[in-house]
């Protein structure tokens, strides 16, 4: 698949825009899925996934063809998702507090903040509830959890996508997992 993708990339770089359609075709579902799980909303997920493909197209000349295209593409998409999440939620004060300290107490403060009433949670379908709980995770943990458990990517690749050391990725997955465990314990 990588050989095919690199062939299409070369065609796009030569000015054949149509060759990019095949790249979109190949990655559309995975990219849409990442965006949907990150954002919890189909409409936004579509918008961000399209934006990610557009950025990939415009910056294709900067892509190093020795590397994996999907890693590069997912990185563009997760960055866009995180930007969107941060713009949407007025929780910038939490964000500022956390920088550098890797979110020690941040999770609990967020979790208690925008929780739906118990009876409403009980009415949710399991699938819906899981997505709801994922979307309540802080964005840093969310990206790691989505890439690990929904895309089922190896830790090394996640670390490349998120541009973080392997240890940090593990920490985020552990914290995200622990947070989800608490959130889903009544299910």
């Amino acid at each position: 698949m990588d050989a095919l993708v690199n062939k299409r990339i070369k065609q796009v770089l030569k000015g054949d825009q149509q060759a990019f359609a095949e790249i979109v075709e190949l990655y559309q579902h995975q990219l849409f899925q990442i965006c949907y799980r990150m954002l919890g909303n189909r409409h936004e997920a579509e918008d961000i996934a399209q934006e990610a493909f557009t950025r990939a197209y415009v910056n294709l000349h900067t892509f190093d063809q020795q590397r994996k295209f999907s890693t590069w593409l997912y990185r563009i998409a997760t960055n866009l998702c995180i930007d969107r999440i941060r713009k949407k939620k007025p929780d910038y004060y939490l964000d500022a507090e956390v920088r550098g300290t890797e979110g020690l107490n941040m999770y609990s403060s967020i979790a208690n903040e925008d929780q739906l009433p118990e009876e409403e949670l009980m009415r949710m379908e399991v699938q819906e509830r899981v997505q709801y709980e994922i979307s309540r995770l802080p964005d840093k943990y969310r990206a790691a959890i989505v890439l690990k458990y929904i895309e089922e990517l190896p830790l090394a690749e996640i670390s490349e996508i998120l541009d973080l050391p392997l240890g940090t990725v593990k920490t985020r997955i552990h914290r995200g997992r622990e947070a989800l465990r608490k959130q889903l314990s009544n299910l």
């Binding site: 359609a21 979109v24 399209q50 458990y149 465990r181 299910l187």
Partner: peptide, 30 residues
């Protein structure tokens, strides 16, 4: 609980991009 959480997250049905996704994306390119 942790293994159950993982199973629940992994069971989240794999959703697909809308049918018009490729076409809309291509229209959006500069």
């Amino acid at each position: 609980e942790l293994t159950k959480t993982i199973a629940l997250v992994q069971s989240a049905s794999h959703i697909q991009a809308p049918a018009s996704f490729v076409q809309k994306t291509m229209e959006r390119l500069p």
